[in-house]
């Protein structure tokens, strides 16, 4: 049955080459931990992607219960964590995954740095990678405010004060981030929008560019 559906679509749209191209792409020996165990360092990029997928999925599900509003935000998080089945697990995945994704991304960056894999012709991919790093930190910063507890509010106050110390544009950055003078209702809705719409969109675009480039240039050779 499934095979028939696949064949029907394939006959019309020729979809086989799309995935065969990925499936038949060989993993070079020096990157395969089955050949050299030390090659596990090449896994960190993929692990970053894997955790990012979990972050996106768990975030989509959390948004089913979360209310981005100062009156209800904390209550809705408390409710989804304590009253909804598996709420602790789903929120836990998003909470711990947020830290883990930074760790994995950092290890990936270290590997690329110490192997010199960023050198010509892969400089552009390094630049995109640094942009992804920035977007990830932005996701962490904006997501931290959303539970709207004491820790979240005061951490955001500190973060926005740090932004305020930027020369020249500091005060503008502060007003832009907090959406006015007060860190309150409008800051929360703004951070929510940035966290679930703007930064994920940027992240997907940058990751797409990252993957297309590595596929086009191939992974860097053995040391």
């Amino acid at each position: 049955m499934l095979q028939k559906v696949y064949d029907w679509v394939d006959e019309r749209l020729d979809i086989t080459p799309l995935w065969r191209d990925v499936a038949d792409h060989e993993v070079p020996e020096h990157v395969n931990p089955a050949h050299h165990f030390s090659a596990f360092v090449y896994c960190f990029g993929g692990l970053t992607f894997f955790i990012t997928v979990i972050q996106i999925l768990s975030g989509m599900f959390l948004a089913m219960y979360y209310a981005p509003d100062i009156v209800n935000a904390w209550e809705s998080v408390y409710y989804l964590q304590n009253q909804v089945a598996f709420g602790v697990i789903v929120r836990g995945m998003h909470h711990w995954g947020a830290s883990l994704v930074i760790v994995m991304m950092f290890l990936h960056t270290l590997r690329v740095f110490f192997q010199g894999a960023y050198k010509k012709p892969r400089e552009l991919n390094w630049v995109v990678g640094v942009l992804i790093f920035g977007v990830m930190l932005g996701l962490g910063f904006t997501g931290y405010l959303l539970p709207w507890d004491m820790k979240a509010v005061f951490a955001t106050k500190v973060g926005i004060q740090i932004a305020e110390t930027i020369p020249v544009i500091g005060p503008i950055a502060k007003t832009f981030l907090s959406s006015g003078e007060i860190i309150g209702a409008q800051t929360l809705t703004r951070f929510f929008a940035i966290h679930v719409f703007f930064l994920p969109a940027a992240l997907l675009a940058l990751m797409g560019a990252h993957f297309i480039m590595i596929r086009k240039q191939g992974i860097s050779g053995p040391l």
């Binding site: 999925l57 598996f86 995945m93």
Partner: peptide, 9 residues
């Protein structure tokens, strides 16, 4: 990965 999320939803 999906089981907790689906049960949650």
């Amino acid at each position: 990965v999906l089981m907790p999320m689906v049960r949650f939803a």
